[in-house]
Design a protein around this nucleic acid. Sequence first.
DNA 1: GTCTATACGACGATAGAC
DNA 2: GTCTATCGTCGTATAGAC
Lengths: 214, 214
Amino acid sequence: MADDKNSRPARSAGHRALPKSEATRQKIIEAAAAVLAERGYAGTKLSDIGARAGMQAGSLYYHFDDRDDIVDQVLQRSIRGVYERVRGAVEALPPNSGELVCLQTAISEHLTVILESSDVSSAALRLLGQLPPESQRKYRNDQRTYGDYWHDIIVAGQASGSIRGDIDPVRLRLFIIGQLNWVSEWPKSAIDSRENVHREAMALIMGGVTGPVG
Amino acid sequence: MADDKNSRPARSAGHRALPKSEATRQKIIEAAAAVLAERGYAGTKLSDIGARAGMQAGSLYYHFDDRDDIVDQVLQRSIRGVYERVRGAVEALPPNSGELVCLQTAISEHLTVILESSDVSSAALRLLGQLPPESQRKYRNDQRTYGDYWHDIIVAGQASGSIRGDIDPVRLRLFIIGQLNWVSEWPKSAIDSRENVHREAMALIMGGVTGPVG
DNA sequence: GTCTATACGACGATAGAC
DNA sequence: GTCTATCGTCGTATAGAC
């Protein structure tokens, strides 16, 4: 649990929210996410990250320990970022909203994150599978936390009857999230407007291909 | 269009279907697919492929021109393989089967391929996105052929009213195929039996989370 | 903080023995 | 057909100037 970098900057007295070094870290992480998303884990070279962040490869070592440290930050932020966004959206619902509304909100927000940050947030999704197995373990907890959050919504919905009960809740979640995640692989030409993607995704997940009335 | 390897072996007179060299090619391609699926494009080393195929890295060059040639074969077989399987299944239906049945058959067969060859066939799906953009062009045709096949089914179904018409047919296809493709990313623990996955995927895609009767 | 230069290892690819 | 040995290249990481 040695973690000297995440609470940076630990300087004398906090005054500004984004000191220069932190802003640069941000820029590097975003650059790395972009490269990771399009080249994959092993295909991401420090020179690419540096180029996109406007500096030389060697300069990255001032801000990060090594290559994996950068990848690490991208993944952490992505996974936790999606979770916080979705949880925030669901918790913003009026109290006693039905489970179906919670599910719809989670779907909508998850999709929003994918559509708006097609780099930073969707990079993680495609990356987890290509990491060396040991590295994957580090993110299992964050992944499971997010999965559990969905799981609870789905199970509650099935108990109340608002969500069909003849599909295993784990697989139901995996089907839904998988369908949404794959949007990050779409050709850009298929996304004419985010509104359409949202509306149609919701319509399909809710009512299926035969439509809301069977 | 120089393509001297694909029609191998071009030996004196055909006698056996699988001469040794062709069998070895097969084994290498399968090994490569396995490594590609778990390490990604750039993460796949010739030494890994060789190890899994039971030979040294240098020996691979007897069967293939270079690294990209191997990746190429994996992708070609995967994309075309799924297409042929799905088309075969749909064409095996009794004539004048409804479009909805065609769609269901396509879904079922696509999922079957993913579940049974979680290496060879699913490797391609995740790979296309991480290839250097120039390389991607080579597979666009095969991809489009497969997409068009689904497209025709969906459009016909929408015309006849058996498939809801309020979702863009291109996105409807992408949603469905994406949901199925993502199954290759599932933790193995989520697949207790292929039958269950099939049944539930079909139920969800057909009727949505609210169930077949709304 | 960022640069250039360099040490070092890893991987793709080739050559030649068997 | 497959092996071992080797070369060349590229990418990570470090060192030290600015």
